[in-house]
Amino acid sequence: MNVPEWLAGRARNASDLGLAVVFAAVLTFWASRIAESWGSGYWQFGCVAGAVVCLIALLRRRERAWAAIAGLAVAAVAIPAALFGGLPAEPGPAMTLGLSVLVGSAVRTLPARSAGAIAAGGLAVVVASLFSARTLAFGVPAVTMLNGAGWLAAVAAGLAPRLLAARRRAAADKVRRDERLALARELHDVVAHHVTGIVLQAQAAQLVARKRPEQVDASLAGIEAAGSEALAAMRRVVGLLRDADGADPATRSPERLEDLVERFGGDGRTVRLRLPDDDEAAAWPPEVASTVYRVVRESLTNIARHAPQSRTVTVGVARDRDAVTVEVTDDAPRPSARSPRRRGYGLVGMRERLEALGGTLRAGPREDAGWSVCATLPVPTRERR
């Protein structure tokens, strides 16, 4: 048993001990009051019945449903017995307290249907106490008010942590859904980028095979390398589900951006990269550095997919005192109205990531030609030194 479990067990034992002391005090008090008002021969039945329910309440952790049923059954027997035997009204304070513990425990932990049945049984005991009091002509009897207050307190004490636990589960489910969406975006980013590269190299290999057959082997080797890189990247992303600590680090340094841009260049396309000074880049927060990398990667992937005719691509990353700005532009001709650029999950994912960090994203055609993606990320205060 680890330390938290040991501490939890000690806390449960302490609470049960305190509850037993309260039960004993209430039983003693009620017995003395009945002996004073009714006489010495009338307190035994109520105290024995109350003690039985209190004992069941102390043993409730073993089987909460059956414990609650047993406590309600004792009350169901005690009420008509007191009514027809000419005894003080039941349930008394001790039994009411025991039943409140049993009902509250059941409402808190049992499945909804079972918890509702136990709560309904407790309410039936409250209603039945009206008849055992034999004072209906003078308004609601005190014993009924006591039992009603105990039942309401039990239901409230059981529902409050139950609803809180439900909210926590709902929040956890939302986080899991968000993580699945994040993983889908990660897979989209990785697969789209690498598969686009493979497709472009395969198209180039077809041209090489017709014009320069001696270079086919080199083209096939490039396709093989790109495929191996895609598999490795997908394994890293899927690894995020298994072990976050062993996954690929989130931070993307400027050197990684240089590698990304270098892989993207070729086929007559010129890619220019402008980066901030090394000291400025080193001060990037990890989440900002990761998002910068993702914005550049997604923008280049979109250019490869939707603007293969572009010849010049410019990637600019700059940082001032308050923000990091990323802009990726190309010079592709404007698409016709019948073949507009599609907006898939990549652009949506970029916008979601940026907005989550308090940033903005602008994407659209440039005035002269081509497309522009501009992202701005605020730098957290703790990073501004």
Rank of each mutant, 00 (worst) to 15 (best):
L7M: 13
R12E: 15
D16W: 08
L17M: 06
L17N: 04
G18A: 15
L19G: 02
V21Y: 05
T28G: 13
T28A: 15
T28N: 03
T28H: 07
W30V: 14
A35L: 04
E36G: 10
Q44T: 11
F45L: 09
F45Q: 04
G46M: 05
G46R: 02
G50C: 01
G50A: 03
A51D: 00
V53F: 00
C54K: 01
L58P: 00
L59F: 03
L59V: 01
R60C: 03
E63G: 14
R64C: 05
A65L: 15
W66A: 08
W66M: 09
G71D: 06
V74K: 01
V74L: 02
A76Y: 03
A76L: 13
P80H: 11
P91V: 14
G92W: 00
A94S: 12
T96L: 05
L97F: 13
V103G: 05
G104S: 06
S105F: 02
L110E: 07
L110F: 05
A112R: 06
R113L: 12
G116M: 15
A117T: 07
A117W: 07
A119S: 02
A124M: 12
A124I: 13
V126K: 04
V127L: 15
L130V: 13
S132G: 12
L136K: 02
L136Y: 06
M145Q: 09
N147L: 01
G148I: 03
P161C: 09
R162S: 11
L164S: 09
A166S: 08
R167F: 10
R169F: 05
R176A: 14
R185S: 13
L187D: 06
V191R: 05
V191Y: 14
H194A: 10
V195K: 00
T196W: 05
T196V: 02
G197A: 09
V199H: 11
L200N: 08
A202G: 06
A202F: 10
Q203S: 11
A204R: 15
A209G: 02
R210G: 06
R212V: 09
S219L: 05
A226G: 11
G227Y: 08
G227D: 08
A232I: 07
A233H: 08
M234Q: 12
R235D: 14
L241R: 15
R242E: 12
A244N: 02
A250M: 11
A250I: 10
R252D: 07
E255D: 14
E255Q: 14
R256K: 11
E258I: 13
E258N: 03
L260H: 08
E262I: 00
R263M: 02
F264K: 02
G265T: 11
G268S: 06
G268L: 04
T270A: 14
L275K: 04
L275I: 04
A282K: 11
A283Q: 11
W284P: 03
V288K: 03
T291C: 12
T291V: 11
Y293M: 05
N302V: 03
A304I: 01
V313H: 02
T314H: 01
V326N: 07
V328T: 08
V328S: 07
V328I: 10
A332P: 04
A337H: 10
S339A: 15
P340A: 05
Y345T: 12
L347P: 00
V348H: 07
V348Y: 07
G349F: 04
R351S: 14
R366V: 06
R366A: 15
E367L: 14
D368I: 04
A369H: 09
V373F: 14
A375R: 06
